[in-house]
Design a protein around this nucleic acid. Structure first.
Lengths: 143, 143
DNA sequence: AATGAAACTGAGAATCAGTCTCAAATAAGA
DNA sequence: TCTTATTTGAGACTGATTCTCAGTTTCATT
């Protein structure tokens, strides 16, 4: 499915669905949660497949352009991605103690967002909401 | 006011309120909107004051720690800051065509956020919402 | 199968924001 | 003034990401 989307996206632009790109796509999809380019690169190496760092970065950009993955946020240590196709839109809560994230979706939020855009004459395309704080576990640890 | 906050923040930690830090603070506060470290550095140079890039970066981190400024977001070209003290919390709409931002505040959003956190047993501390899309002007240009 | 044009690839160089190092300067206190 | 701790700036360094470019692969056409 994703393979089809990616290859036809490439074809439309006169680009090719090479085996390196296939390998990168495959490993990308194997992540259920968030991932970063370097880990992806290492994971590909481990598996015996091969693709250079340059190709990994290039391909991640392509995958973003065609909407299969998204940049979640940039940290001090680089960009975090997630596989979005098939996983509907959602937002994140980020624990500032342990780094874990909780994904959630709120219909109310989507509606509110629409209202806010209308009020500002803004044509919203997408959004990211990140709530930072303490997850359940870390609240206990703290005291 | 801000000067007082910063200097006593430093004092508490056994650090000093030097003239470089004072200069950086002053220029920081002169921004009404968003700014980035490099522009701030150049602005300081222009004024005849002096502080090295290293000091600018070091001081921006201190100012974040004491809550006078905040990191708004990281772009491909570095971190964007804003002066937050005195300017209540707000969120942003970012035009993906011209790069302009609209600041807004919504009480409904704050309330909704509280509800979402409660539902997830999450202790929210702060959040950022960024809505990307087209501002009024750019909607017209596009068609 | 041979050819040419265009897209791809990987290795390593280049870039660039941000941090670190360290010797010299400065401040605070005894 | 002497001692000690903090700060500073210049430039080296780091790490993520992009760029370069020569060699390779693909595809459509002969």
């Amino acid at each position: 499915m994703e393979k089809k989307i990616f290859s036809s996206f490439l074809k439309d632009r006169g680009q090719r669905f090479t085996k390196e790109r296939a390998a990168i796509l495959r490993k990308t999809l194997s992540y259920h949660g968030h991932f970063d380019p370097e880990s992806l690169y290492l994971k590909i190496r481990e598996t015996g497949l091969k693709a250079s760092r340059a190709s990994v970065y290039r391909t991640l950009n392509l995958l973003c352009e065609c909407g299969l993955i998204e940049k979640v946020r940039k940290t001090e240590h680089g960009t975090i991605y997630e596989h979005t196709f098939g996983h509907g839109h959602h937002d994140h809560m980020l624990c500032i103690m342990c780094g874990n994230t909780i994904e959630f979706y709120s219909e109310d939020l989507e509606r509110l967002k629409e209202g806010l855009c209308t009020k500002q004459n803004f044509r919203g395309v997408n959004h990211t909401l990140e709530i930072r704080g303490y997850c359940k576990k870390c609240q206990k640890k703290r005291r």
